[in-house]
Amino acid sequence: MNRRLDLTARNFPSAKDECEALTPHPNYDGPGSAYELAFKDEAFLLRDDMRPVRMQLELLKPELQLTEQGVRSTVVIFGSARIPPRDAAEQRVAAAEAGGEPDAIRRARMQLDMSRYYEEARNLAKLITEGSAARGEPIYVVTGGGPGIMEAGNRGAFDAGGKSVGLNIVLPHEQRPNPYITPELCFRFHYFALRKMHFLMRSVALVCFPGGFGTLDELFESMTLMQTGKSRRRPILLFGREFWSRLINFDLLLETGMISPGDERMFHYVETAEEAWALLETEYELATTPTL
């Protein structure tokens, strides 16, 4: 027996060991009994009073897993779940034209036009994954883990043979994680606030593709945290100047004093994956030759 192992041996059994060693107690295992271990008692953990503990767990689980997986720097890709890949959009146009309903045809053609953003998000994620890996400083793509632009981001990293993160969330309508997320980096959240916190904790840049309420919420919370000094400033890239300038009148915010001069420089408009990656290369001097 190697007594030196005692120097690092556990003094107490782990929670897992203790759960596995439990023996049933018929007199106390029935409904309504309070005998279950607290950390194993689902009914107890789901009480309203335990919300602070559940929030802490939702903060800790991804944090510990990401640390263990060596994820230090990320680029977050936000965008609509409703933007399909080009092949799917083309199929919808064909089906709509076969049906002959003008509104359906118009919507399908708009989706086909917007599908270019899916392809740009996929290409950008591939460039980030390949470009950072080549320097030995991996930058991981993070998305909300769903379909559309989120799928495109995870898919691009997958195309490059790299890992990527998906931060999925429970919604009233079922949302499944897309199939391109690295399984050990795929998380499910209940609280939007903690999910958004994890988007920002390791990010070196935020990339916003066209999207709806959820995308706008993520963008403006990020900008507010940077504007107020709660979070360090980092590049924010808005894909598609025409979309964003029509959606948000930043000039009006400046003219009316709702934001300060300089706040409009918190973001950059970009149109292509190559343009976005070049901007990040410049920002972080990634295009220089690594020191050997």
Results as ranks from 00 to 15, higher is better:
143 T>E: 11
165 V>K: 00
142 V>Y: 05
81 A>I: 08
111 Q>Y: 03
73 S>D: 14
185 L>N: 02
170 V>E: 12
155 R>K: 14
182 T>R: 00
119 E>D: 14
150 M>F: 11
184 E>W: 03
110 M>T: 14
77 I>E: 11
94 A>L: 06
96 A>M: 05
135 R>G: 10
135 R>M: 13
92 R>M: 13
111 Q>R: 11
159 D>V: 06
107 R>I: 06
129 T>A: 08
174 E>D: 11
133 A>H: 05
149 I>C: 08
85 P>T: 03
106 R>A: 14
136 G>E: 12
151 E>W: 07
173 H>F: 15
134 A>W: 10
75 V>T: 07
90 E>G: 03
156 G>L: 04
108 A>G: 11
74 T>R: 01
105 I>V: 15
85 P>I: 01
182 T>D: 00
193 A>P: 04
169 I>G: 06
166 G>S: 01
91 Q>F: 03
115 S>P: 14
137 E>I: 06
105 I>S: 08
129 T>W: 02
102 P>V: 12
79 G>A: 04
136 G>S: 12
90 E>D: 10
139 I>H: 10
134 A>N: 13
125 A>S: 15
118 Y>L: 10
194 L>W: 09
130 E>I: 13
176 R>P: 01
88 A>H: 15
179 P>M: 00
151 E>C: 10
164 S>G: 03
125 A>H: 07
183 P>L: 00
193 A>W: 13
105 I>N: 08
189 F>V: 05
181 I>Q: 00
100 G>S: 03
195 R>T: 12
83 I>A: 13
141 V>I: 15
95 A>D: 11
78 F>M: 13
87 D>G: 08
162 G>I: 01
151 E>R: 14
170 V>Q: 06
184 E>M: 01
86 R>E: 15
160 A>N: 09
81 A>S: 13
175 Q>K: 12
179 P>G: 05
76 V>H: 07
116 R>N: 06
160 A>D: 07
130 E>L: 14
161 G>S: 06
177 P>R: 03
147 P>H: 10
191 Y>V: 10
175 Q>W: 06
167 L>C: 02
172 P>M: 04
192 F>S: 10
104 A>E: 12
92 R>K: 15
158 F>G: 00
151 E>M: 12
120 E>M: 09
107 R>N: 14
144 G>I: 04
178 N>F: 01
182 T>A: 00
